[in-house]
Nucleic acid binder design. Structure first.
Lengths: 222, 222
DNA sequence: CGATGATGGATCGTATACGATTTCGTACTT
DNA sequence: AAGTACGAAATCGTATACGATCCATCATCG
């Protein structure tokens, strides 16, 4: 039995998704069906499907008879995405907390220790990557697949826009690591679901509000 | 200038969406591209696109080389959908609360009064419809479009499954109306965002837990 | 009689083709 | 010189066509 190749539309989806996440395709970039199809060596039909999928996830915008462009990122979109993720990831982390094994917790602590080290030898890309993994460990056990799916989508969007901007807020990384530690302590102490949720959500709204404050904007009401 | 007709794929999407929401297409029903295309008088290509869109929203499942079926509904899916909606709608309602006008509040109260009347002359479909509208009034002003979109998707899924089952839990309708009243009072009193969120979320988890209890299952941890 | 393998029909996945729509450059008018 | 009208090129939307894959049926073999 041969391993069946992924469908063309799947390949197209993965290619575009990756490029957007990596920031190779900047917001506003025009995605032309024919061009992408030629590059992939397939027809426009599967590419169309891939693009509609990306649209459903909010990574690209699509206009009838006009075409697709990588979703523009402005302060407002960032705000909305972070706010949504605060809500959803908070819930996911809270639901996952009672299901975390000792191994999971150890991994999370190890990653956070690395994050702390990262603070010394300033390395933002690596920090971001570790940070992603840290949170993934905490929410991945969420037993509700819908919520988990929404968390993934939120992170995708966030990564897509991080690649182009919004990368860094001065003192935030350090307090972030502290908040991680606090969150882990809470979970280890067997805190209630709502306590964990509150802490996980606050962690994200803190980042958002730090950004908003830097721009002289009011904090999120959440 | 003539109003341009909606694209075929849009038409196909709307047709299928409506049928699923109305329960004409029961879960497990097989959606065959060619058949639908013939019925719509178009080719399979736009139908494909419509189905992929429905898939992204969780209304149908799609397997490679197999095809699409209307998403099966089981207790677990219902649980997960309600749980997700509890989180998302709670946040949406909380964010919308400070933006509700006196007119909005009056409309909500009027709808709830009708709901109360509905309790007498037992009319479940109408009750459900009014209930939908009641909540829509409360969350529709949510300033975060992502969250709003997720609420809409959640309700869509819920409606799709309500059509086939899960329609009624004995005493729930009456307490539901009371909770609505309480929620409106909270908002009128200018309660904090987190209080409104808690109340709105509780309203939904109460329904979910009533269902779970009826089946002898443990309540949601949220 | 049950398991295995071949065969055909149904359905999907994608290439190609072409009409429809938008966009952009250019010539013409005021 | 600015604005408008026209036409060509680019791109999208969808029909048609055909190979690929799956599933059900039935024949064959142990």
């Amino acid at each position: 039995m041969t391993t069946l190749a992924p469908s063309k539309s799947q390949q197209a989806y993965e290619l575009l998704h990756e490029r957007i996440a990596k920031g190779e395709l900047v917001p506003g970039y025009r995605l032309v069906l024919g061009t992408i199809a030629a590059e992939l060596g397939c027809s426009t039909v599967p590419v169309r499907e891939a693009i509609r999928r990306l649209e459903a996830e909010g990574l690209v915008t699509f206009e009838r008879n006009i075409g697709a462009t990588v979703a523009a990122v402005d302060a407002e979109l960032y705000l909305h995405t972070m706010e949504t993720l605060a809500v959803i990831e908070g819930a996911a982390t809270a639901l996952a907390a009672p299901l975390l094994s000792a191994v999971d917790m150890a991994e999370a602590r190890a990653i956070n220790a690395e994050l702390r080290r990262c603070l010394e030898d300033f390395d933002p890309p690596r920090f971001t990557q570790l940070n992603d993994r840290f949170h993934a460990v905490l929410y991945e056990r969420c037993p509700n697949p819908h919520i988990l799916d929404l968390v993934h989508r939120g992170w995708n969007r966030l990564n897509a826009m991080r690649a182009s901007s919004f990368s860094h807020i001065p003192g935030r990384a350090r307090s972030s690591v502290e908040e991680h530690e606090h969150l882990l302590d809470l979970i280890d102490a067997g805190a209630s679901t709502s306590e964990v949720e509150k802490a996980a959500r606050a962690h994200r709204t803190n980042t958002l509000n730090a950004y908003l404050a830097a721009d002289g904007m009011p904090p999120s009401p959440l």
